[in-house]
Simulated assay, not measured.
Amino acid sequence: MKRNCGDEAVRQGAVRQKTEPVLRSVRRTLANPHIPVYHKALVIQGIVLPTMLYGAEIDGSTTRATKNRQRAVNRALEMVAGRGVALKALGKELHLPGVKAAVLKQQWRAVEELPKKRTVVAKLVKESRGRWAWRPRSLREIKRAERKCGQKISTGKELMDAWNERELLRDKASASKWYRENTSSGFGVSELSVKFPELARGWRNVLRIISGYLWTVPRLVRAKLI
């Protein structure tokens, strides 16, 4: 079976079509400075991510297959903290997985669970043949991700967490490097924004600072402010 690029283009077009409606529905909430960061993270976790990840295990976890989904999530993150931030660090602080990591988890679960179903789906999965059939392709992508993570993986969640850490480690943004060097589990901004809601605007600025929105001296010089 050959890879059908036409079908893939159709699926990516469908992803782009649902991006604007979901972002439009959450824009006012995510951009509102008076809503705690914790609740904004829940909106992304409960609305944006599920919408973007629906059926994603079918398309696969390659960069090509996940890039449009990740762009939508990135736009949602920018609504929370503004542009010019290190999105990998911001996602880590808000306890949000990257799209590729989340798709890998979904693939793992689907590969394990679908053959056990008492439906025609199980038969289709078991009888799939060829390099680009869904099951062989998914197994290949999962194994490739395991090798790149460089550790033994036993569950889909472990693979998702390992891939998230790998992406943060490989992010070349200076803010991500600073974030890695100063915390391993986050600064707890989301939780603090609920505990001290009167500092609503302040928590957004804290998010921007720890994820790279800093007016460094070279940047000030280029802007001719000093």
Rank of each mutant, 00 (worst) to 15 (best):
G212E: 02
V99N: 13
R222G: 04
V103K: 09
G130N: 02
M160D: 09
V189F: 08
K152C: 07
P97G: 01
K177T: 04
E158G: 05
G188P: 13
R204H: 12
L199P: 03
V111I: 13
K143I: 05
K92M: 06
K157C: 09
Q151I: 06
L214V: 08
G150E: 11
E198T: 01
A162W: 15
A86H: 09
D161A: 12
E141A: 05
S211D: 07
S138H: 00
L207N: 08
A101L: 03
G150Y: 00
S185Y: 15
G150K: 03
R208H: 08
L104Q: 11
E165L: 11
T216W: 14
S154Y: 12
K126G: 06
P218A: 00
L124D: 06
L104M: 12
V206W: 12
R180Q: 13
L220T: 04
K92R: 15
K92T: 07
W215Y: 02
P136V: 03
F187R: 01
G98Q: 15
S176K: 08
K100Y: 09
K100D: 10
W108T: 06
G98M: 13
K157D: 09
R170P: 10
V121F: 11
R109P: 13
K143P: 07
A86S: 08
S138K: 00
G186Q: 02
P136Q: 03
I210D: 10
V85D: 01
W108V: 12
R201A: 15
K88G: 03
A101Q: 01
L192T: 03
G91Q: 14
I209S: 04
D171L: 08
L169Q: 06
G188E: 05
E141I: 04
W134D: 05
S128N: 01
R208Q: 04
L139V: 02
L220N: 04
G188S: 02
S176M: 12
R219V: 13
V121H: 01
A223T: 07
E165V: 05
A162L: 15
E113D: 12
R147G: 07
G98N: 12
L90C: 14
Q106G: 01
R208D: 04
V103Y: 06
R137S: 10
W178N: 00
D161N: 11
P218D: 09
S176E: 11
W134M: 08
P197K: 00
P197R: 01
G150R: 00
A101R: 05
M160T: 10
L207W: 11
R208L: 13
K105V: 14
A175N: 04
D171E: 10
E198L: 02
N164V: 14
K105T: 11
E113P: 04
W132R: 03
K92C: 06
G156S: 10
S176R: 06
V99L: 11
R204G: 11
